[in-house]
Amino acid sequence: MQIIKWLNEHIEECLLVILTSIMVIITALQIFMRFVLGSSLEWSEELARYCFIWMIYIGISYGVKKQRHIKVDVLMLLFKDKGKVILNMIANVIFLAFAIFIVIYGTNIAVQIFGWGQTSPGLGLPMAFVYFATPAGMSLTVIRLIQQLVKQWKFLQGSYVDKDEVIEDRETDLYGAQDNLNDRKISANEGGR
């Protein structure tokens, strides 16, 4: 249970940190090899790119968890809390349907590509690993969407759920500005002393 709870909290974060680190290190290594050592790696760009693809699809799931996907919310402005939640639920159901579609078709394609045995030119890695990024990330996304919908349903039923958790209030938190801000206020005060 402990493990599941920890995974539920941190799985995306953990993967995102690993993938981002590899991307940065490998790309820097590529420049170093070419510029300093004068000899290039034939697999570096490829590995960085494949980590990038995985990062995107894991990040999409995390975006659902953190409610940070980019949307146009003109209609949102017209509704009060309950209306906002209902509208949000409709959007989430559409997202869910699309995610399930991607999981099914994506798995299908990845399995076929695995069977045909296509390999990447630099690393010789089975290309299916790259193609599994979409169904894997979207499977996580499906879980996150269902969690979200359950919370929203409970809110509509009147059980206590923190309003911020069910209504996407992306506006003040876009690009992590709120977090940056908190850090910065402290450092600004320090600077003032």
Partner: peptide
């Protein structure tokens, strides 16, 4: 060059510094 063993080897043999660039 392309990110391919064969192409990279070819240019190494000819004395160039092959670099895969996108």
């Amino acid at each position: 060059t392309l990110e391919s063993q064969m192409h990279i080897r070819l240019w190494q043999q000819l004395g160039a510094n092959p670099t895969p660039i996108n």
